[in-house]
Amino acid sequence: MVKKRHIPEVPYRNPAGTELGIEVLTLGALRSRASGGHDLTRPQRPEFHLLMLVTAGTGTHTVDFTPYRLRPGSVVWVRPGQVQQFRSWARLEGPLLLFRPDFPPPDAASPFGPSHWQLTTENRVLAGTAADHLAVEYAALAHAPPAAAGRLLAHLLGALLHRLSSASDPRGPRYNDAFLRFREAVERDFATRHRVADYAHALGYSPRTLTRATQDAVGMGAKEFLDRRIVLEARRLLAHTDLAAAAIGARLGFPDPANFVKYFRHRTGTAPGGFRSDFTA
């Protein structure tokens, strides 16, 4: 019997048995946990944020088909729903934070943003200090009443996330309101809405306004932004599940398999079956 491939969806669970929405540990501690029978080298899709700061060693971590080479000062932020995979990480050291989407302050943990960036020497010191402070308080409060502990830890996590986010782009956010609303709508509805005009109508903008707003924010038009999100999900399902291409197309809003194949080939240069073969070769 051929073993079925799938993307394990990993829910948040604090092994300490607390109700806290955050776990603060280290990459070394996670490796020890993995040696007890938890296979972390397979692709998985966490339902929570996974944030690591590399302080020593080198290695590789993959997020949504992109392998990132890590070294001291590297930050990896895997957001809920992304497919991530621990690759060569035996020598990596540093803090690791796992936290639910609703744990930090609302403005501190966007579901969007870069998956990897490199800190400057100054920001490495500042981020390391913030992470150490969080770890000390977590150790002291892990068994305290969740409500009291959670407020303090959420505040400290928010401070660290703001530090890291500003370090990833010192110029700060440049996103306009129209793009932010469009981005959220795409993430929610990309499998059922494939036309920019439909998003524009639902959001109360003209298609031209959405296109201009998206171009200003991320350097591509609204249609390309939408298409990239659909194609990303198709790649995830092709690479990490055994669903037939027709079933994947139907899940993504293409009831006609031929239309899905044409759409995917036009935007990637290969057919769905060819992509799956190349990925699993």
Rank of each mutant, 00 (worst) to 15 (best):
M1P: 09
V2E: 09
K3W: 11
K4S: 05
E9F: 10
P11C: 08
R13C: 07
R13W: 10
A16R: 10
A16Q: 10
T18Y: 07
E19F: 10
G21R: 02
G21H: 03
L25C: 12
L27C: 05
R31G: 04
R31T: 05
S35F: 08
G36M: 09
D39I: 05
L40E: 04
L50I: 01
L51M: 01
M52Q: 04
V54R: 00
T60Y: 06
T62I: 08
V63Q: 01
F65A: 01
T66L: 07
Y68C: 01
R71K: 07
V76R: 00
V78C: 04
Q84L: 04
R87I: 02
P95T: 06
F99K: 06
F99R: 04
R100H: 14
F103K: 05
P104T: 05
P106E: 14
P106L: 12
P111Y: 14
F112S: 11
G113R: 11
P114V: 10
H116T: 06
T120S: 15
N123M: 13
R124C: 06
V125S: 09
A127S: 13
T129V: 14
A131Y: 03
A131M: 07
A135I: 05
V136E: 12
L141V: 06
H143A: 12
P146E: 08
A147P: 04
L156G: 01
L161A: 09
H162Q: 10
R163T: 15
L164C: 06
S165K: 05
S168M: 07
D169Y: 13
D169R: 14
P170S: 11
A178E: 06
L180R: 15
L180M: 14
E184T: 14
A185H: 09
E187C: 11
D189N: 15
F190E: 05
H194Q: 15
A200E: 05
A200T: 13
A200P: 15
A200R: 09
H201P: 06
A202P: 11
P207M: 09
R208L: 12
R208S: 15
T211I: 03
T214R: 11
Q215R: 15
G221K: 07
A222L: 10
E224F: 08
I230M: 02
V231A: 04
L232W: 01
L232C: 02
E233L: 02
E233T: 04
R235K: 14
R236Q: 04
D242A: 04
L243D: 03
A245Y: 00
A246V: 02
I248E: 00
R251G: 00
P257V: 00
V261E: 01
F264N: 00
T268G: 00
G273K: 04
R276N: 03
S277Y: 11
S277I: 05
T280W: 09
A281G: 13
